[in-house]
């Protein structure tokens, strides 16, 4: 039996918003440690990896490992039936073909119960190696969303350059070009861009903005985002989910042959 209780529905709602545009169906792999999900987009260019630790949830139990095949759009719709502050329980029996959702209102005077059919999903699982990155940039998640949105109006791709001066995002299109530079600023002043850069080697890589736009849907989960880059390897974009876990995205770079 698997059962996880979230003090508020909002975390699950935000996790679904952060994944549903990238992935239609995904296996939620539940174990004694917690909930994990790994899924690629249909073109296999990007990957989302979600981890929620059971011991950081309001309550959690999972005796036997279980893989729950979930249609992300259906789950999004069911979660819309919950208020943000509703205590939310998700539950599935071993060998169950449904997941049960229970939403309890703040005053405990209203309880809603929904059942969602589970699916058999045959998904390809990738082994993601532990990677030392040449550059890791921590910045405001809102700022990152803004830059991705702004440069998407110019072109389809973004060139990300990280060096000791800071990070620069650049896009070129048929009608023009744009760049946004953020200086690394160790003195934390009010109103500064407030980014930190951990750099061993300068890097310059190209990525499709279309996927970065999907990743920025995770911004409500965290005030900060971290971008990890090395030459010729996938970008990792990570949003922490409080103390509960993280959502990480990987995106294959565009490389000149």
């Amino acid at each position: 039996m698997f059962e996880a209780t979230f003090n508020q529905a909002s975390i699950l709602k935000q996790v679904l918003e952060a994944t549903k545009d990238l992935v239609n169906d995904a296996n939620w792999d539940c174990s004694a440690e917690g909930i994990a999900l790994q899924a690629m987009d249909s073109s296999h260019v990007s990957l989302v990896s979600l981890s929620l630790r059971g011991d950081e949830l309001a309550s959690y139990r999972c005796e036997n490992q279980i893989s729950l095949g979930i249609n992300m759009n259906t789950m999004t719709k069911i979660l819309k039936c919950a208020e943000n502050n509703d205590r939310t329980i998700i539950r599935a029996d071993d060998d169950a073909d449904v997941m049960v959702f229970v939403f309890e209102s703040e005053g405990r005077d209203k309880t809603s119960k929904y059942e969602m059919k589970l699916m058999d999903i045959d998904s390809e699982h990738l082994g993601i190696p532990e990677q030392e990155y040449s550059a890791t940039v921590q910045m405001s998640s809102k700022e990152f969303s803004r830059i991705v949105r702004d440069l998407s109006t110019i072109g389809e791709n973004v060139e990300i350059t990280v060096d000791k001066e800071g990070i620069t995002f650049g896009a070129k299109g048929e009608s023009g070009s744009g760049t946004v530079s953020l200086k690394s600023n160790p003195s934390v002043d009010e109103g500064s861009s407030n980014i930190t850069i951990d750099l061993t080697d300068s890097v310059k890589l190209n990525f499709a903005l279309r996927y970065l736009t999907f990743f920025t849907k995770a911004a409500p989960l965290s005030d900060n985002v971290s971008l990890s880059l090395s030459a010729d390897v996938p970008l990792m974009v990570e949003y922490a989910i409080g103390d509960v876990g993280f959502i990480r995205y990987y995106l294959a770079p565009k490389i000149d042959d």
């Binding site: 296999h44 260019v45 699982h125 990738l126 390897v233 990987y250 565009k254 490389i255």
Partner: peptide, 14 residues
């Protein structure tokens, strides 16, 4: 600019 590779070009099957 550049060719879009799939992730499997970088990560192996688990």
């Amino acid at each position: 600019s550049g060719k879009q590779h799939q992730l499997s070009a970088f990560f192996g099957a688990a």
